[in-house]
Amino acid sequence: MKVLLRNPRRELELKGPLRVHRLLEQLEINRESVLVVRGDTLVTGDALLEDDDLVEVRPVISGGSA
């Protein structure tokens, strides 16, 4: 599967099938700080990602303190 990451923007190629929570563990990403988008919708941690999926790990934290 193709995995798009942001900040900085980059792409990874990973083997499926893989559960979303395992993907985040492998990438060492806190699940509270991202959404996982498959195609055009969100998926939960127990969703199974397949080889031909296009997946975006989208950070949700934004930063100004004003």
Binding site: R9, E32, V34, L42, P59, G64
Partner: peptide, 27 residues
């Protein structure tokens, strides 16, 4: 939470700036 706000935008099709403000990085 901000995860809920990002999810709201994804699920309603609201396009927003995902990249972090370059001034805020590391604050």
């Amino acid at each position: 939470g901000e995860r809920e706000m990002a999810a709201y935008c994804v699920l309603t099709g609201i396009d927003y700036i995902v990249e972090e403000c370059p001034m805020a990085v590391g604050n």
